[in-house]
Design a protein around this nucleic acid. Structure first.
Lengths: 244, 244
DNA sequence: GAGTGGTCTAGACCACCAA
DNA sequence: TGGTGGTCTAGACCACTCA
């Protein structure tokens, strides 16, 4: 690597290294769950010091894109790992007890993106999408009515069978079946009244207050790859949020 | 500083420095908004290298406890600064437009902690507390019915007048009037139905779905110092949450 | 014992800011 | 121009893992 000093578009070396590592991740040189070369190897490969590689990896590690394990090496993060399957699930029981999540498949259809979804997923209005509906059940009680949409192109071959096999963790299925790894998500929460369809699915009265969670998930390069709307019964559960 | 190697309770040097800096913050040696000594000064004071001080400050900076300004120095974070007054407010208008927050004072009374509040604020049941209710209005529309409780002891002298003067930002008032600085908070969200009192205050029908935000705020040393329950009308607003 | 990440140092130089 | 934080290096040593 070469420093580009006194330039108006100055970028620290470690940020450039970070981009290079990210490109290798996107390109599939190192796949989810795999180990990446040691810091010393990367330093010699990029012609920088170990400390500079370290700083780049530090940054990727705090973004949960890489995982460091002292004495072992640095690994590409994966949703497959135990404890990572529900990384984005912020809903927990009020009493804190552990629960079994179950997934009841409702439907999976091909469709066309309307203007709203097209804008969110950064695709053309009318482009092919795949739409999934399911019911998430905790300890036998239906709690979340989930509606999700992905662009059809990167998920060619996604169908009912694959969703049912996924057993609730769509993200690890996206990874193993389609090589699409989600690295972050944005959620927008509201309180809404249950409509007829949802009330029936969750065994509630129409108009019952539900927590509406609208989520957009992003893969490498901040590319949006999934839209999701979860309607949650929060009588015995709450959504946890840490503010720092 | 002295390294304590081969010890079972090994802690990195920079973590020990971090504790020392935090103690100076708690002790009031450097107050909110003030500049702290330069990295070089701190390094010589603690008898470590600049790099080690740097790592300690890095950590405190990512926790929003210190603020680094290149070319100027490192400062103690404050809620007084512009843009920091609403640091913990995650509610934004759906259309994204800027809004004027207004604060309508409802009540401020002394009371005794029940078991639930006592446990949360880490005080004895029956200990003195101060209870405030207010209405937050955005662009002329009442949106949040807020109920908050602080322990009376650290907030001796807190009264209606001070709340009204605070003009909506309790946290900057806590800092300037009582020297209590909140550094992080935990929120638990639910969807609930508006009860009679709240429905009246927000000009809604009873039973209308509201977003319930229960917040516990912590000062240095993870000491809980405020409990808060906000009931929010989310027809035109949503709560933003970033998942990483 | 060899290899990995983690800590710590000392020193050079750069970018930013204020006087 | 001098002081501050920010980057980068080279090297030493430590803690952890595994064969």
């Amino acid at each position: 690597m070469e420093k580009l000093s006194n330039s108006p578009n100055y970028r620290p070396l470690y940020e450039q290294i970070k981009v290079l590592i990210t490109q290798s991740l996107i390109g599939g040189e190192w796949r989810p769950g795999e180990i990446i070369p040691s810091e010393i190897e990367l330093a010699s490969r990029y012609k920088v010091s170990q400390g500079t590689v370290r700083k780049a990896i530090d940054s990727l590690a705090t973004e949960n894109i890489l995982i460091r394990r002292q004495g072992k090496g640095t690994f590409v993060a994966t949703h497959e790992a135990e404890g990572m399957k529900l990384r984005f699930l912020r809903l927990t029981a009020v009493n804190g007890q552990k629960e079994l999540l179950q997934n009841e498949f409702l439907s999976c259809v091909k469709s066309k993106a309307n203007a709203y979804i097209a804008q969110i997923l950064d695709i053309k209005a009318g482009a092919s999408i795949i739409e999934v509906k399911r019911l998430l059940t905790f300890s036998g009680r239906p709690l979340i009515y989930d509606h999700l949409i992905v662009p059809a192109a990167p998920f060619k071959g996604l169908n009912s069978a694959k969703v049912e096999e996924s057993n609730g963790s769509m993200y690890s299925m996206y990874e193993s079946q389609f090589g699409v790894r989600m690295i972050r998500a944005e959620e927008r929460l509201k309180a809404v009244a249950a409509d007829k369809e949802v009330a029936k699915a969750l065994a509630l009265k129409e108009g019952y207050p539900l927590l509406s969670i609208e989520r957009v998930s992003f893969t490498y390069g901040d590319k949006p790859m999934e839209w999701r709307l979860g309607l949650c019964l929060t009588d015995d559960h709450h959504y946890m949020s840490e503010l720092e």
